[in-house]
Design a protein around this nucleic acid. Sequence first.
RNA 1: CGGGGUAUAGUGAAACGGCUAUCACGAGUCCUUUGGGAGGAUUUAUUCUGAGUUCGAAUCUCAGUACCCCGACCA
Length: 391
Amino acid sequence: MKQTELFTKTTKENPKDEKSINAQLLMRAGFIDKLGAGIYSYLPLGLMVIENIKNIVREEMNKIGGQEILMPSLHPKENWEITGRWGVEEMYKIKDENLGLGWTHEEIITPLVKKYASTFPKYIYQIQSKFRNEPRAKSGILRGREFLMKDLYSFHKSEEDLNDYYEKVKEAYFKIYERCGIKEKTFLALASGGEFSSSFSHEFQTITDAGEDNIYTCKDCGCSFNEEVFESRCDCGSTQFDKRKSIEVGNIFKLGDKYSKLFKMDNIVMGCYGIGITRVMGAIVEVFNDDKGIIWPKEVSPFYIHLIELDTDASEIYDNLQREGVKVLYDDRQKSAGEKLSDCDLIGIPIRIILSKKTIEKNCVEIKRRGSDKIELIEINKLIEFIKNEL
RNA sequence: CGGGGUAUAGUGAAACGGCUAUCACGAGUCCUUUGGGAGGAUUUAUUCUGAGUUCGAAUCUCAGUACCCCGACCA
């Protein structure tokens, strides 16, 4: 993609009405635009990140038998009256219509599976916009009123089968966070089961000061607990904990027969498993940034290479990289070097390649990784080989 | 939903109750520039909305709205 054609713009100043790092950097770098509190547009760069995260999630869900569907956002009142959740304040309701906007999908998926599934287990998921009338949207895209979420629902004939699958989803989730680059900072924390479960649930919590939760991690066994279920002694006997702020990037619940019973599915137990796609994106930015901008992990970055020409023409290199299928953003703008380099740092693509008069003299391009100060020169005719080894 | 704060050009800021509301950046046009945000010329506003005080309001008062932060809330 040529930068002159890219639908986006960077700004030097931080937006005055955003304090959170993820919102400031994503807006300054031109990934997102703010429409209201907790309501954002995703511009091409932002959408590329979203699509990358979605694809990672999709691949890992498919590996554990998930089948993707798409359910509507508009939900009839009747479905929600069956579970008694029509009155929930979080739900946006459409005036003078018996419709509300979906903030979760148990009320839709359960009758749907009842209608179409003849054998079990079944693992059905979707990636879709959720709407929640948050009393206080905050922290940029970490807590929005409209946001993207992957929600998987599993249906089983026995508790044992549910338990087995629950463990599989745990593993799949860690694989997702690993590919998103945040595994080192993400902990499985025990949390309460919520309104419908007497047991516990699990949350995936990414350590960041921008988070709204506190988790306690046992210094001996490494088990983590959400504040709400934290007791001063771990199961392993230890009383020493690290308390840290974190953001919940996923959660998994055993629903038991609560919903299957209400929708008259006999002898079926359910689990539900969520990942906030846009929240994961925000969490990545919160974890990976410096004073110059974002530092995208490889697999979620909108591009892999940021090719910059300084007072010369790098279109031949761009064409060659394109031909090799490398995702490259080509800064062909007629701008000062300072501005191009600053924008490059701000946008945060993993590898920067510069072609300038200085490097041409040596028949080279300059390569620098975002987040590192090390600069290396590579001969132009060896560039493709070099990049292929990196991929 | 409680508490605190803010609202001026696309963005960020300035302007004692008093001159044609100023500056920088961005964007448009023209010329010169190019290794860490370059220079000149020129264009770019319903001061959030409504009411009030006043000879006179961006500035003071009241109400509303929006946004940010703290808390409450949070599948």
